[in-house]
Design a protein around this nucleic acid. Structure first.
Lengths: 169, 169
DNA sequence: TAGACGTAGA
DNA sequence: TCTACGTCTA
């Protein structure tokens, strides 16, 4: 018996609800919510174009979350993650970054998973539902290197995450 | 129900035989053969002294295995593993390195697990039985940094590993 | 072959 | 907080 890789798809995953919690990235992969074990941006080829299907905000880059329905997600690459000892480089519009741009162009939904503080300092990954990429910026960071920021907004009409979290306490 | 960490102990593990194969480091940890997920040297405090209980040779450092009953195991640290992009440093006689020295002084056995090529390029971890640390050297490597090498020899009277591997093919 | 928002223990 | 002979995908 061989485990079948779940097919990568856009939008909600059958059986997974907003507020569902997971301890390990491997669990996100198992159920097909986010199929990358370490990479923050997951994407797949849909009709010849690479589209982002999910992102994990584990606070390893300097993301920002102004309000509960906004997320500013840093692009990958450039060795810009917090605590990296290697000299910084420019980020490039490739792989996950390019996929997020394509998702913006196509206005396709992106699943968002957030790492949150759980009971007794345990950290958990929580499914926060669907977002769309409104736009992205390409700036130079403090080290003078190119860095992307993708501005996501939560698709309206979904249950509020903090209410789901409180409900399950 | 909570999974109990196996107690770290010297010598053979009950139920594990020489030649037993494992795909993941997490499995070595589960059965208590080697309780570090990434670290190559596992050790524990026995009567006030840190003694090495197991090492994994995954060929990430420049180890040498002259014959089937010898193993020259590189110390950890100093960023000396193959492919490391950071500037090299001196290794220090701490943690795993110190534990291997202590094991030498006490002549206590050290379990050896080797990563080997399996069927169709699959790599596997194989239990190779008990070794003792005969001596260690402290040299300067090509970059002029201090590096340890621990010289282990296989405890006599154990089944030959290659015979066990052939037997299970 | 290299990159990647991991994970647990010291 | 930092280290560490991992593990998977592209």
């Amino acid at each position: 018996l061989k485990w079948m890789e779940p097919e990568k798809s856009l939008g909600h995953i059958c059986g997974v609800q907003i507020g569902d919690k997971f301890k390990f990235r491997s669990q996100l992969k198992m159920i097909g919510l986010h199929c990358q074990l370490q990479s923050g941006i997951d994407y797949t080829n849909i009709e010849g174009k690479n589209l982002a299907i999910s992102v994990v905000d584990a606070h390893r880059y300097s993301n920002e979350s102004g309000s509960s329905d906004m997320l500013i997600y840093s692009g990958h690459g450039g060795l810009g993650f917090l605590g990296c000892k290697l000299p910084p480089e420019d980020q490039k519009l490739v792989r996950g970054n390019l996929a997020l741009k394509n998702s913006m162009d196509e206005r396709t939904p992106v699943r968002v998973i957030r790492k949150v503080e759980g009971f007794q300092k345990n950290e958990l990954f929580v499914y926060d539902g669907l977002y769309v990429v409104n736009h992205y910026t390409q700036n130079r960071n403090e080290e003078g290197k190119i860095a992307f920021q993708f501005h996501l907004s939560r698709v309206p009409g979904q249950p509020l995450l903090h209410k789901m979290l409180n409900a399950s306490c």
